[in-house]
């Protein structure tokens, strides 16, 4: 049903989503843990900045990332390799774009951990690292899964940022959503429908177990 080019685009999408989620968990877990244990206006500012990608139109975000990461941008001016039009650039863009979807559930998950359990662990001699790995991480398990799945699904459906930043290079930056857009613009609706259906099925397969898991852990 899907042509070779569409399968390739789907592969780029899945790889991008996986790499983005791994990167976001690596940065987001320490960040969320740190934020969950803070209060005051500093925290409010940081949380607002994390939520910004929800508010900004994706094409606007993509346009400024293009200016930032392109060969005429400030990063190239200080000697960094230009990331626009590369898979690495899409990872950076997707991590920013999906940041709130991963970090916000993590913050909530960490905030819900009973402080008394952390205190008890401390009394038993567990250091901060030990408390994070043996109490906080297991305690926030369901939040971590929710954040990871939402980040994955959100990146899979990403369009505006990739459209501006990626340049639609086959095998590199042409993701499934861009391939669908190109099919629609070329009036090849059959291919667009087929690829869209595959995306919907993949997303449902991811989301349904997540919500079942969430309900179970709540009851």
């Amino acid at each position: 049903m899907l042509g070779a080019a569409d399968l390739q685009a789907l592969g780029v999408s899945l790889l991008l989503a996986a790499v983005t989620v791994i990167g976001l968990l690596a940065c987001g877990l320490p960040l969320a843990w740190w934020l969950a244990r803070r209060d005051g206006t500093g925290k409010a500012w940081l949380e607002a900045v994390i939520a910004l990608p929800l508010v900004l139109p994706p094409t606007v975000l993509g346009f400024y990332l293009l200016l930032l990461l392109g060969k005429t941008g400030p990063l190239a001016a200080v000697g960094l390799p230009p990331l626009a039009f590369s898979f690495g650039g899409l990872v950076v863009g997707s991590m920013i774009y999906s940041l709130p979807f991963v970090v916000q559930p993590l913050i909530t998950g960490f905030e819900n951990i009973d402080q008394r359990r952390l205190d008890a662990a401390a009394t038993l001699g567990a250091g901060p690292r030990d408390r994070f790995f043996s109490v906080a991480l297991p305690g926030a398990r369901s939040a971590i899964i929710t954040g990871a799945v939402l980040g994955f699904a959100h990146t899979l459906g990403e369009f505006g940022v990739v459209l501006m930043l990626g340049g639609s290079l086959p095998g590199e930056t042409r993701v499934a959503s861009i391939a669908i857009y190109q099919h629609v613009e070329s009036m090849d609706l059959a291919s667009a429908h087929a690829l869209s259906a595959v995306l919907v099925v993949i997303s449902l397969v991811l989301l349904v177990p997540t919500y079942i898991l969430r309900r179970r852990s709540r009851s």
């Binding site: 293009l66 392109g70 060969k71 005429t72 626009a84 459209l163 639609s168």
Partner: peptide, 14 residues
């Protein structure tokens, strides 16, 4: 494919 404006911005950015 893209809009003329965004393709132009992309070409300018390399």
């Amino acid at each position: 494919l893209g809009s003329t404006g965004s393709l132009h911005a992309q070409i300018t950015a390399g």
